[in-house]
Design a protein around this nucleic acid. Sequence first.
DNA 1: ATGCTTCTTTGATACAGATCAAGGCGATCC
DNA 2: GGATCGCCTTGATCTGTATCAAAGAAGCAT
Lengths: 248, 248
Amino acid sequence: MTPELSSTAPKSCEGCQIRHRAVCSRCDDAELTQLDAIKYYRSFEAGQTLIWAGDDMDFVGSVVNGIATLTQTMEDGRTQMVGLLLPSDFVGRPGRNAAPYDVIAKTDVVMCCFRKKPFETMMVDTPHIAQRLLEMTLDELDAAREWMLVLGRKTAREKIASLLSIIARRNATLKLMPLNGAVSFELPLTREAMADYLGLTLETVSRQMSALKKAGVIQIENKRHITVPDMDALMEEAGDDGDGGLLV
Amino acid sequence: MTPELSSTAPKSCEGCQIRHRAVCSRCDDAELTQLDAIKYYRSFEAGQTLIWAGDDMDFVGSVVNGIATLTQTMEDGRTQMVGLLLPSDFVGRPGRNAAPYDVIAKTDVVMCCFRKKPFETMMVDTPHIAQRLLEMTLDELDAAREWMLVLGRKTAREKIASLLSIIARRNATLKLMPLNGAVSFELPLTREAMADYLGLTLETVSRQMSALKKAGVIQIENKRHITVPDMDALMEEAGDDGDGGLLV
DNA sequence: ATGCTTCTTTGATACAGATCAAGGCGATCC
DNA sequence: GGATCGCCTTGATCTGTATCAAAGAAGCAT
């Protein structure tokens, strides 16, 4: 159950450069070499909690493979997902110690980590890394705030449509696919995880998925494989026609 | 209706140094002088929209006096407040152009602004400003994510209690007052604005305020003046016993 | 096969909060 | 004084989602 550590790239990591570039899109070769020197890989099993809220985090890094979530929990067990980590997403809070919420692997996860102390040292020497981090954090803030609108004001049906269109969009971006025409993807979340993200119950999620299917907005094969014949129709259902591209 | 500009500190601005320090807590005198050179004041009337979503923002700054809100709106008019700006709070997105949501003055507001271009130049020359901004942004992100839990999982009563305890806490911090014993403050928001923040209707807000009053958790004088005899009891109602201090 | 377990769907019912509606209170203006 | 306006409260009713309950479908171990 303890995470496996290795200093070699997992075979599934296609081009770890991409991870480095996620941390700093303007690094030169020397800086990338520096990053290489302090990086290592970690694997986690599905269901494992990578980091507990309040724990000290001694690394920052990015997801190479798999899905993890940021989750907040109340004493009585109610939980709310506050972030979704897909491959290439960054985790970590340079300059901070304790993690503010649980990070949980929803599938098997491989992370590319950088030890925090040397990473912070590098940040001081390399101002554009700090600027890149500020940019990323602003993006996350935008995404969180857009999600507040979803949680506070949208109906169950709109919430589902919003989540599906985010995942579809992310998926297309990762695979460099266009978003016109039919889009098809594997849902990385259970109905329960979707409910945790949307502030709903899993039954309501299931019902609304069925409703969207009956309405012809989506097709569902094998519970988890989703096809969206028309992204515009889905975004119409989500209530955010047009723009809506901020969400992570 | 157009904002009033002036280059002199409004008489209500007690010690603008504090605003500069909010932007950078480690600035030396030379840097503060630099900040002084690019700063100006702006006043807005209650109800005025300081910045429209999508507009270019040519400044960053902080609130000196009054209350403003960050608000998102859907096409059909549903709105969700995604942030609350109290005196000393920072507004702006160095490195970004368009504002992501409306900023609306809820009372008359005075802001201390810095022109964006020179501010960004200064950021490049002065790395610890970028670091300070990263810290502030991380704080905002934490607050936004904690608010997601409120919006997604808390009951109406818990939402109200959460909001009141944030405002009480912020108020006490600004006035350097202790949080034990009875706490008393002026509510800066109408019932409708509270509803927008909490994802409720104004009627529900009113009812739950009455309920908390009847339960003796709060006292209400003149609709807007709130006394909390026991902060612990209020936080108990909010569902976050203990910690819960992240929220802005 | 058979029986587990985990995930999902669907139905019946309950309830929190929304909606619709009316009236109260205080400020400001004439 | 009375009229008007913005804000707040309270009541009656409706509705979307939660809750409780049962059963289907797929995967996996035996």
